[in-house]
Structure formats: C-alpha cells, structure tokens
C-alpha cells in the first residue's frame, strides 16, 4: 500500500509573527520556518503504518519554492521513502492546493492520503476535505486513532465534546490531529541518509492544473491588545475586584 503525505512549510509555532509596517502582509523574512506540526503527525502515522507492514511506500509532497526542500528532507529523515516538490512561487489558497494535490494523487495513485488537519499559518483547515471532495473520496478529519484492515480504515475523530468513529473505504483522505501520535525525533545520521533519498522537483505548470485566484488578502493588522491589567496581592483582593464587574460571580 502506498501513502501520500502532503506537508506544508510554516513559521515555527513558537514565533509570534509581525505585521509589515505598510500592513500589506506579515513579515516573515529571516523567521525560523519548519514543518507544520499536524503534518508531522501525518508523516509519523504513515511511518508507523509502514513499520506495521501495512504500508510499503511513503511519498511526501509539498508545494512552493526551493526553500521547501528542507521540510521534505525532514520527512525523508523521519522515514518517508521519496519526496516531491511541486515548484511554484505563487501563494496558493486551500482550494488551489487541493487542486494541485489532486493532480499529484492522480499521478501517484496512493491508497491513502494523509495530511495535517490545519496549517498553523493561515489556520484555514480546509485542504484535506477539499482534496477528498475533488477526488470524490471518503474523508476522515481530526484523526486521533487510525487502524487499517484490508481495504478499510477505521478512524477515531476528535469532535466537539468527544470522539466519533468512522469506517472509510480506501482510498481515502485522512487528516491528523495532534493526538494521533507523537512524532519521532530526527537524528543526525537519518538526516545524512535522507540526502540520498530521491527528491523530485515538479514544476507546477507541468501538472496542467487550472487555478483561479478569487481570494485576495487586502490587508493585515495586529489585533488590538487587551488593556493592561493589574496584579492583586491575594484572593480577597481578587474577589473584591471581581465583584466590581456586575454578575460574573455570585
């Protein structure tokens, strides 16, 4: 069984990004970048399925400029077998990303597509569902547990207030939640070995995907800061302050 894992390069989750002075966009020049955390869960799950003998080949794919090769090398070092960079300088929104991935899926014919549930830069959380829709495949989002038997995946999904279990026939698109697994740490020798694994550059144009750009970002801004609060010295002072706000405590 072949698995395609789609990943994205994002600003490191510990970094608070800043808005450019002209409000045109965020300023990410020179900011530390890395693999989107949920996408790392997706890679880890693919590798675990391979270690169980269920999966035979893992292909990692991302879309963007040459700088994106670093996260593909990271995926290869974790245990992906080969990688593909769909090269473009354009910024693509979720629908366009899903259309590009559809073309990759049609080329690679995987039995399973794994992605993170959401990218922590645009926080859209749409690509997996859109890809499933375009491919007319079943979807299972926010997976916290994945079991594959024969041609069926059983997925425990995180929903509001609990979990839901779905059975989907393969091929299917599954998006990973944080609790699906704990991604392994990449050791230096694995990074060295990953250099020998195949990484293919595919120009976006060569995939013949027709993309529209119907969403424009007009401006960005920093949200208004909460007004500075005060420090209280003990519980009594805290309670007397809270009682100045009508109705919030009895």
């Amino acid at each position: 069984m072949k698995v395609l894992v789609a990943i994205k390069r994002v600003v490191d989750y510990n970094i608070q990004v800043r808005v450019k002075a002209d409000g045109s966009n965020v300023d990410i020049d020179g900011v530390k970048m890395g693999i989107n955390p949920f996408d790392e869960n997706a890679i880890e799950e693919a590798i675990r399925l391979k270690e169980k003998g269920i999966v035979s080949e893992i292909v990692a794919v991302t879309i963007g400029g040459a700088a994106n090769q670093d996260i593909l090398r990271h995926a290869l070092a974790m245990g992906a077998d080969r990688a593909m960079l769909v090269e473009t300088q354009e910024t693509l929104h979720s629908l366009s990303v899903a259309k590009v991935l559809k073309a990759v899926v049609e080329r690679e014919q995987p039995n399973l597509v794994l992605l993170g549930k959401q990218a922590i830069d645009d926080d859209a959380g749409q690509t997996g569902q859109m890809l499933a829709a375009l491919l007319k495949l079943p979807q299972a989002t926010y997976a916290s547990q994945l079991t594959i038997e024969g041609n069926q995946a059983t997925v425990v999904r995180e929903i509001d207030g609990g979990t839901e279990t779905l059975a989907v026939s393969l091929p299917a698109v599954i998006t990973a939640d944080l609790r699906l697994n704990e991604p392994r740490y990449v050791k230096l020798p694995n990074l060295m070995m990953a250099r020998k694994k195949p990484l293919e550059n595919v120009p976006l144009d060569s995939l013949n995907v027709s993309l529209t750009h119907n969403v424009q970002q007009l401006k960005v801004a920093t949200p208004p800061a909460r007004p500075a609060g005060i420090m209280v010295k003990d519980v009594n002072e805290l309670l007397s302050k809270l009682r100045t706000h009508e109705g919030i405590i009895g």
Binding site: Q16, V26, D123, V215, Q217, V220, A221, T222
Partner: peptide
Amino acid sequence: GIYAGNVLATVQSS
C-alpha cells in the same frame, strides 16, 4: 485571524 489570531487578515472573495 491568521497565525493563531496574532494577525487579523482582511480578505475578499470574488
């Protein structure tokens, strides 16, 4: 909100 709500983006869809 984008970037965990640290940035507010105004977006337009045609």
